[in-house]
Design a protein around this nucleic acid. Sequence first.
DNA 1: ATAGCAACTGAGACTCAGTCTCAACTGGCG
DNA 2: CGCCAGTTGAGACTGAGTCTCAGTTGCTAT
Lengths: 171, 171
Amino acid sequence: MKHQHPPIERELARFQEFLQVQGLKLTSERSSLVREIFATHYHFEADELLGKMREKDVKISRATVYRTLELLVKSNMVRRVHLGEDHYHYEHVSGNSHHDHLICTTCGNVIEFHDEVLEQRQREICERKKFTPTFHNLQILGVCDACRRLGAQPDAPDRVKMIHANNLLRK
Amino acid sequence: MKHQHPPIERELARFQEFLQVQGLKLTSERSSLVREIFATHYHFEADELLGKMREKDVKISRATVYRTLELLVKSNMVRRVHLGEDHYHYEHVSGNSHHDHLICTTCGNVIEFHDEVLEQRQREICERKKFTPTFHNLQILGVCDACRRLGAQPDAPDRVKMIHANNLLRK
DNA sequence: ATAGCAACTGAGACTCAGTCTCAACTGGCG
DNA sequence: CGCCAGTTGAGACTGAGTCTCAGTTGCTAT
């Protein structure tokens, strides 16, 4: 059971280095949050993270959760993504695998994908427009295979009413 | 001056037809909002629209603005887009020109583009994943040519602090 | 044309994610 | 090991968006 998550220790070290460079401190709250985030293999919401810390009787305030997420985003260890709902979701960056999302508007499932042709074409478009890209975000909304077999019809592209991925989150 | 916007009348007729099919009514509030939206050639926020109606002494409540926008999105006449800020922006759909966005994180300017190679590749990816797409949303954040010449450095992919595009809105 | 009624509206209370404030606390450098 | 900048928690605050409900209005059928 011990040493089950050596990668988490590596991430913690990475975060500590980032903090040190900025003249910031690695507090117990920050390291608990990093451990939790990197043990979670799914997209999560800030308030879900807060709830999970409370469940574990690790007392951390809402403000600290948001402040720490901000630092993690700045350090490129966490990415803030839109998944069709009207607030942010977060996902940790493992290694450096950029990916985009297919989002099922029926069951809320999120399928990640990466496609180099798409990436390359975007770089070409930016070059043509003399635009220096730093980041991009592609969501494709629709209906996944399983839901389509069950007869789900594609929604209008209105606000997606997603089934919360809480059950997936706690994996 | 009169007959300056015949296309707007066409849009109104389109909306009325949509409403009729749904058993809904074309009220004076709804038609004022449609006129305003289709006379505006830029991305706007719900509250900006509310403000513009107030400036013109057309009294429409916040709730009605949101309700009408929802109907317009359902009728595919207006699209709800994320532009890097934490709330929605809207844009009317002229004809049926789908496009994506390059967003300058320095000046807030938004460049629209459409690329058939990108679209086709996305369709291929969906097919391979057996996913039935209904809609997609691609934002590329970065620094535009003008800002780069002025020495702007690309931000970390943190929350974009955009200069509000209000000045652009009122064209 | 007009009565009737479902659809619609406005005012403002409400929700919910996210931010801010400030007094009390603490990590880590000197 | 003392100091103090950086950090935290509690809870007030903000701002976008939603909801409620009593009063109003567009439309259809008479």
